[in-house]
Design a binder for these strands. Structure first.
Length: 633
DNA sequence: TTAGGGTTAG
């Protein structure tokens, strides 16, 4: 009979079923149908549906069953999909596990799988792990493709090194990969992110001149970087260029521009742009309105925000939870709690269920109003509604209590949260300790927390305190804490050193600034150019030139150099040029004064180089910088 | 759906 159930029908039903567990029920039921067997297609559909909805346990069960019935070699696509699902939900370890077990289950990962896991690692900031995957892939003999390179460029851009990304881009053709608009735009947005507008625009131009033009999707990503900074002008400049090449804006493009105008503070212009969308043959959607409403709220134009809430409803666009939360938060921030309440009630009448965002806005607003009783009531309501592990809700109330000077209650809340299995984070400590702005009490409190509540301290918590004292130029208290760190298990990190060195420079204690910088470097931490520059200025002003030159050389030895040094491949040239380049770079970026620059420039030239010491160090320059960078992650 | 698109809270 030809009427038998076919896999493609089953797959279609799974796809159209909204509830993943209902789909699973059906999936299991059809197994009992006479003569029916699940295929790669039906398994894949089922796994995709469960993964998309985060039903990972059920998904793993189906996967285990699939392994018994489908040839392992065919499963790479399924594994990649599962990695993506885990990645989307932030389950990075689970994604890695899937990747690591592919071999075991007799499915050899190809470049696609390597790319997939590398991308997840980079997205979540595990740069050194991503690099290890890359190295392993090369060791095995798999060739990286244009995706691999783009992911690596993205990793460099996220870590603020667009020049390194550019070098990668330029090397691609030599490795048998043609670059495309996506790889170009990754580097261009990397430069924009770092405010290197000239370099970015130059590269954009170069791309177009080569006949490579981004499609609207790639272009949108690029201008989103700019618009998030409120740089609409530059976005428009790029926009007119691609328009000439036949690229058409879509609704995403408009929404990105609306966001840019709002960020820039040109809300009325943003509103006009929204109105003009229709004349382009498109229709503003809920995100267009939400973005604009958010803009009005951020600029305290609550009347206009509410006006657009009504406008969207009248145009047939249904507000969603973003809309309500945005406008409720707007009213709460403005101290208009009654208005917030009215919107909330109307929204709930229409079926809106308050979530974490709503509760935190309300608690924040009530605290600012000084209405602690209601704030607590809303907080406990949220706890009952199932937000027991919400660090943000705890922090919101901790902030409120601390600001009102109710520090003991804030501490009690901190204790409660720990008892509920929710660990306080840096925000919590910061709020409790600095919340009421009375620093003299803060130290006592710090000690109290330690003794009475037996909280385990971390470097980050010490840093909060040290920074607070340094900001008030109370260096002796900061020192006291710094030494306390040595007595506990919390090692000072780069941030601790930066803060300490900064305040020594500010208060004119050059000896200690100098000592701390040397200690910082000797511990293998990498101080920033800014920090080095500050100490160098102090040393130069007091004519301690030889000590300053030693620091420049230490910077070179430890890879604290601008990118261009790494592009010098000949060791001899590098030896001579690196200190000079460092000094010039420090001046260019205004880390040192012109006075210091002149002294240092001569100092370097006149100093006889200790060749042995130098030779040993320069070969480490590029490698060490990367290693240090990874250590911070 | 292997790299590349828009909105909310401490």
């Amino acid at each position: 009979m030809n009427r038998a159930l076919q896999p493609k029908h089953v797959a279609a039903v799974i796809r159209y079923q909204n509830d993943p567990l209902n789909a699973l029920k059906m999936f299991n039921q059809v197994k009992t149908e006479d003569g029916f067997k699940h295929t790669l297609e039906t398994y894949k559909c089922m796994i995709e549906k469960l993964g998309l909805h985060g039903k990972f346990e059920a998904m793993e069960d189906v996967l285990a069953e699939m392994r018994k019935n489908v040839d392992s070699k065919m499963l790479e696509g399924v594994y990649i999909g599962i990695m993506r699902d885990y990645g989307r939900k932030g389950k990075v370890q689970e994604a890695v596990n899937v990747f690591e077990r592919m071999d075991f289950y007799d499915c050899e990962p190809s470049v696609q799988s390597y790319n997939a896991i590398m991308n997840i690692l980079v997205e979540y900031g595990y740069f050194s792990q991503a690099h290890k995957v890359y190295m392993r892939m090369k060791d095995i003999g798999i060739y990286p493709d244009v995706y691999t390179h783009t992911i690596r460029m993205k990793s460099f851009c996220i870590t603020g090194r667009p020049t390194a990304a550019l070098r990668l881009l330029n090397n691609m053709p030599g490795q048998g990969c043609e670059f495309n608009a996506v790889s170009y735009c990754a580097v261009i947005s990397g430069f924009y992110k770092e405010n290197c507008q000239i370099e970015a625009y130059h590269l954009f131009d170069e791309m177009l001149k080569q006949g490579i033009c981004p499609d609207i999707l790639t272009f949108n990503k690029l201008i989103h970087v700019l618009c998030k900074k409120g740089n609409v002008q530059e976005s428009e400049k790029l926009f007119s260029k691609v328009m000439k090449r036949g690229v058409c804006p879509n609704l995403f493009t408009f929404n990105i521009f609306i966001q840019g105008l709002c960020r820039k503070g040109a809300i009325d212009e943003a509103a006009r742009l929204l109105e003009s969308i229709v004349s382009e043959g498109l229709t503003p959607d809920v995100i267009s309105y939400n973005t604009l409403i958010c803009g009005f709220c951020k600029h305290s134009k609550l009347v206009e925000a509410e006006c657009y809430l009504h406008k969207m409803v009248n145009s047939g666009v249904e507000p969603n939870e973003f809309t309500y939360n945005t406008i409720i938060n707007g009213f709460c921030k403005a101290g208009m709690m009654q208005n917030a309440d009215k919107i909330l009630r109307d929204a709930m009448f229409k079926g809106f269920i308050p979530d974490e965002f709503t509760y935190s806005s309300l608690i924040n607003g009530l605290c600012n109003d000084g209405d602690m009783n209601r704030a607590m009531a809303v907080f406990y309501e949220a706890m009952e509604k199932g937000f027991k592990h919400s660090i943000i809700l705890y922090n919101t109330l901790v902030k409120g209590l601390s600001k009102q000077g109710l520090v003991l209650q804030a501490l009690q809340l901190m204790k409660d949260m720990m008892e509920h299995g929710c660990s306080p984070d840096i925000w919590t400590y910061n709020l409790v300790v600095n919340g009421n702005g009375e620093l003299d009490k803060a130290y006592e409190l710090f000690v109290t927390i330690e003794k009475e509540y037996k909280f385990s301290y971390s470097t980050a918590i010490f840093n909060i305190m040290i920074n607070a004292f340094c900001e008030k130029l109370n260096v002796s208290m900061a020192e006291k804490l710094f030494h306390k760190m040595g007595g506990s298990d919390c090692a000072p990190d780069n941030y601790t050193y930066r803060v300490m060195i900064d305040s020594y420079c500010k208060t004119g204690n050059i000896d200690l600034a100098h000592t701390f910088l040397l200690e910082n470097i000797s511990k293998g931490l990498v101080p920033s150019f800014t920090t080095c520059g500050k100490v160098l200025n102090c040393l130069c002003v007091t004519h301690r030139l030889s000590e300053a030159v030693v620091i420049i050389n230490l910077m070179v030895q430890n890879g604290i150099v601008p990118e261009e040094v790494n592009s010098i491949f000949e060791a001899d040239k590098k030896e001579v040029a690196a200190p000079k380049i460092v000094v010039e770079y420090l001046l260019k970026k205004s880390h040192i004064t012109y006075y210091s620059y002149e002294l240092l420039y001569d100092g370097i030239r006149n100093r006889k180089l200790d060749n042995k010491k130098f030779k040993r160090s320069t070969s480490l320059v590029s490698g060490k910088r990367v290693a240090n960078h990874h250590r911070h992650i």
